[in-house]
Amino acid sequence: MLHKWILAAFVSLLGTSSLLADETTQARCVVDDKRRQICLDHPAQRIATLSPGATELMFAAGGGDQVVAVVTFSDYPPEAQAIESLGSLTRLDMEKLISLQPDLVIAWVTGNPAEQMERLEALGLKVFYLEPRRFADVSSTLLRLAHLAGSDDVGQQVAQAFEEGINNLQQRYQNASPVRVFYQVWNDPIMSVNHEHLIHQVIELCGGDNVFADLPRMIPRLDTESILSANPEAILAGGMGEENQAWLDHWQQYPHLHATADQNLYFIPPSLIQRPTPRLLQGAERFCQALDEARAKRQ
């Protein structure tokens, strides 16, 4: 069974009225991450996912066969690459999107252009907004998307497996000695994450101490001097592509930086750490392993 706090959150997000409606009809309602109730008369049959993470989440929730439109970089699972693309998540081909007549659009709160989303809503399209910022949010999103797609059993199984994996890591690392960490989310300008971001939850999960946790912006912009001043023990980064570790090369030129001196420069494939999907568990496992290696190098 799913953990009680996941189930409680799911019931709250579904709403009592939707549960009663489902007893006699195929209608289904959930509350999205903008706290708006989204109701469908029947399970969605034509779904547009407007971020790579949304695409992956919908497939994981069992609704992949109903996805008719994605955006660029929707590369997982491989079947998603064959679906018609609407262009960039920040510059959508609105005419193409509307022509596909989706009965459900999955949008990213802070990623898709607000004016384009408002236009879709004005046209009467059902838009579900997602913005997971906690591990529980990933599980909850899977359950809600599965409910809208009519694949509740699949959503529950995947959410449960994700939750169990995260719980195992929490138990393993709850007493781990702290490692001061800088996570690099972009290189030009240099960007990191503060305590509001889901990646920060991964850092804490693994016993890391996010050196930029207290900055006011969720995605703070930084300069090299800021990182040198913070002097993290480990630097972890994604990159431009799943195997491109070039961002870490920049830090090799600073031999007195703690992370460089100990060679604690680690690459995490961005799709495993920067998408709020079940594969975040794999990213977290790699993240924790990197911090374990950093601990082992201590004198």
Rank of each mutant, 00 (worst) to 15 (best):
V179L: 15
V179G: 14
V181G: 09
F182M: 05
F182Y: 15
F182N: 09
Y183I: 06
Q184A: 02
Q184D: 10
V185I: 15
V185K: 11
V185G: 06
N187M: 13
N187C: 09
D188Y: 15
P189F: 10
P189H: 11
P189M: 07
P189A: 07
I190G: 10
M191N: 08
S192R: 06
V193H: 07
V193W: 13
V193M: 02
N194W: 13
E196R: 14
E196M: 15
I199C: 03
I199N: 02
H200C: 03
H200Q: 00
V202P: 09
V202N: 07
E204I: 08
L205K: 06
C206D: 05
G207S: 03
G208Y: 04
D209E: 13
A213G: 12
D214L: 04
I219A: 12
P220C: 04
P220V: 02
R221E: 14
R221H: 12
L222Y: 02
E225V: 04
S226F: 04
S226W: 04
I227A: 02
S229M: 05
S229W: 08
A230M: 09
P232Q: 05
E233I: 00
E233G: 09
E233M: 03
A234W: 05
A234R: 01
A234S: 11
L236K: 07
A237M: 06
